[in-house]
Nucleic acid binder design. Sequence first.
DNA 1: GCTAAATTTGCAACAGAGTTGCAAGAATTT
DNA 2: AAATTCTTGCAACTCTGTTGCAAATTTAGC
Lengths: 141, 141
Amino acid sequence: MRQTQQIQQLLKRNQLSVTDSRLRILELFFQQDGALAHADIEKKSGAGFDRVTIYRTLQTFVDKGIIHTIPTADNAVRYALCKDDCTQGHHQDHHVHFVCERCSTTICLEDVEVPAIRLPEGYTASHAEVVVNGVCRNCSQ
Amino acid sequence: MRQTQQIQQLLKRNQLSVTDSRLRILELFFQQDGALAHADIEKKSGAGFDRVTIYRTLQTFVDKGIIHTIPTADNAVRYALCKDDCTQGHHQDHHVHFVCERCSTTICLEDVEVPAIRLPEGYTASHAEVVVNGVCRNCSQ
DNA sequence: GCTAAATTTGCAACAGAGTTGCAAGAATTT
DNA sequence: AAATTCTTGCAACTCTGTTGCAAATTTAGC
């Protein structure tokens, strides 16, 4: 399976040991183009990894910049893959996410540009998170 | 105390019974111009209200449109007062919040306009939440 | 390929956030 | 002031996330 090799390389590039849970969880992210919550991963991983392992794996991936978190109004943390060109600097920039009101699918709109936001005097912005709520392509059909 | 009367009227206008906890919690929101988390309210309320009461009170206020929630990256729910002209329609619109990276103060920037965000084809936006992270006026001095 | 060192996993136990049912207590209505 | 309605507090529970530690796995050296 070629994807598995890609994932292995991704892990090694980030100086991480290649383990079952890491392979499987990354695989899930590559299969899904939307974002995943911890609970999704716990269900979909199948292999019955310990909750703690999943938490730690996700944290590790966030630390390494492989995935990033998405803030949502319902206070459920979701994670999404960072694109390959998404290096450290990425998270300093603007970032747009879309949450579908019908199916709750959360996707990362990397291509959408966030217009500059004018703040009151005295305020300095370092980066902004934008969460757009609405109806996704699938649900609007 | 005149403010107490204002708060009482606000409650009655929303068909809510006037109780100690509701008065006190609304008072906190009026004193504070930033946002409050559940934990903040528990500490600051002083009067030792039950945790459950605070949860239910906040939920009631959200339902009535008196306060609204703010999504943050650290996954801590915060609540802020809606302005008087902030009726139901408000939450359909854009909304900008600012979180200070130094003091964690969260404020609601009602006056800032959010530029329209262009989405890929097939996607329909109903409203957007923008969270700007940076340094607030107090901390930048 | 095998051993030692380093890393990762799973378990147990815990902390915190939030919810629900229900009886007792307040506020509102008449 | 009594009856009704609504709200509170308690207890118990679920869900999410964290920490310490021993066992298991992975990696690196030989």
